[in-house]
């Protein structure tokens, strides 16, 4: 915004960069993510506060254990999707629409793989261990915490797919790299939430038998 003014250049209310050099849409995404910290913070606080308070089985560590090798793979899938996402952003900033499309699709694919893994995990717990959302307080807090994370991943996949569709309709260009960057911020946030959940829920779960 350091261009020389031209009489025909109208001032608009969307005059970004005016005060702080920050872009409105990017700023609002960060404020939103700050708010999301409190959302997942409250869910995690609920899960952690109710830990070990189930009055009836099954509870991990006693009746069954988390399948750590399996969850490690799905956590890694989500981590790699973040790499794909950042490569999509790098591609659109270069003006490489084809590369953007490929990396966005890769991100979506990895995201869906993660969701598939979550679906598999949930059904295994439900069928093999008899753990429903209403079975005990562990089931309630586990399904709600990981389920809301899964819902966030789903929204992210839909968002990225919308960008892919836009790119096929020729509406995504180097000048709209911000659209991809902001979707990326959301996607990475969903990833870091899982980094925390992976440790707090899975790796720090009581475990003794089973291995």
């Amino acid at each position: 915004m350091t261009t020389t003014a031209h009489p025909a250049q109208h001032a608009t209310v969307f005059d970004d960069h005016r005060r702080t050099g920050l872009i409105n849409r990017k700023t609002v995404m960060w404020v939103f993510l700050g708010s999301e910290c409190m959302f997942f913070g409250s869910l995690i606080a609920t899960y952690m506060s109710l830990r070990g308070r189930s009055l009836n089985p099954p509870y991990p560590g006693a009746e069954f254990s988390f399948d750590i090798p399996f969850t490690t793979v799905s956590a890694t899938v989500l981590l790699i999707s973040s790499l794909a996402m950042v490569l999509a952003v790098a591609a659109i900033q270069r003006g490489d629409i084809r590369g953007t499309r490929i990396w966005l699709l890769a991100t979506c694919g990895l995201g869906m793989l993660f969701l598939g893994g979550q679906f598999y995990e949930f059904t295994t717990f439900f069928v093999a261990e008899g753990l429903g959302i209403d079975t005990n307080i562990f089931g309630s807090s586990f399904y709600v915490l990981t389920g809301f994370h899964g819902a966030h991943v789903t929204v992210g996949v839909l968002w990225l797919l919308s960008l892919v569709i836009l790119s096929f309709r020729g509406k995504l260009s180097q000048s709209s790299s911000l659209d991809v960057e902001i979707a990326g911020l959301y996607w990475h946030f969903v990833d870091i939430v899982w980094i925390v959940i992976f440790v707090l829920v899975y790796l720090l779960a009581p475990h003794g038998g089973g291995h």
Binding site: T46, S49, N56, I133, D134, I137
Partner: peptide, 11 residues
């Protein structure tokens, strides 16, 4: 679910 029901481990 039983988040706020103490008889089921909630609070």
């Amino acid at each position: 679910t039983n988040f706020y029901l103490s008889e089921w481990g909630g609070d």
